[in-house]
Design a protein around this nucleic acid. Structure first.
Lengths: 121, 121
DNA sequence: TATGGAAATGATAATCATTTTCATTTGTGA
DNA sequence: TCACAAATGAAAATGATTATCATTTCCATA
């Protein structure tokens, strides 16, 4: 956790919601911070690794970032507008554990996302 | 619906599951078809527009396609050696459907992968 | 305080999927 | 056969992301 990481966290706190690396970079630049795009990408990656921010994808594939809510959760993402709902994955946790056991896997993690069109789109 | 569209559908039927545009192009080339990458992208786009194939995103943002309503499966991947097991996701299908309904989402698709260490690693 | 090495930084170039452009080919109805 | 629209694909353009690498900043220790 270094200075750049903290800057990014600060921007994400203030903006709320999702933002792309390029947008976050522009915001910092606009605020007079001379931070480089490379550093923005590095900081975001490190924050994702530390599970401090979530990384999702916009419809066009661009990566978007947001501060993690607490705890383990999954996402329900609208393909139209990008609106995202954090959901619990109770059934998934069991499924992952069961499948892993069945095939003798240990130290398991899993990913699961649901994509669709929200009621507005 | 033209000749290229049909070629792509045929490949997707044979491979099953997801494949990227680049992969689909390589498969067709390997089979002796001189189809161009541009045409592959165009055909996939038109199939997505017609809701004949689903478009999702891999973790790295690359677009992946699969036939709609395809009986699909999930993967159990070893972080050590890369060995992959195809597994059924019965519990997940229901979970995804339930969650989507709860939040008023339609045309839903989902991704789910489990990562761990296999018995040999 | 000086110093030496490790970590952080950022400009630049490279990568890679995807989209545009545009000239050529193919198919089709008159 | 002719004219014309649709389809095709090579090549260039685009845009996000990653790799390189020289330089700067930290920081512990002498």
């Amino acid at each position: 956790m270094n200075k750049s990481d903290l800057k990014l966290i600060s921007v994400l706190e203030r903006t709320g919601g999702f933002a792309s690396a390029q947008e976050l970079h522009q915001i910092l630049r606009r605020e007079g911070d001379g931070i480089g795009l490379t550093t923005v990408y590095r900081a975001l990656q490190s924050l994702v690794d530390d599970k401090i921010v979530d990384l999702l994808r916009r419809d066009d594939g661009e990566a978007i970032y947001r501060l993690c809510g607490d705890g383990h959760h999954h996402h329900l993402v609208c393909k139209g507008c990008g609106q995202t709902v954090e959901i619990e994955g109770g059934a998934i946790e069991n499924w992952a554990k069961t499948m892993a056991e069945e095939f003798g896997f240990r130290e398991v993690a899993h990913t699961a996302e649901i994509f669709g069109l929200c009621s507005k789109c």
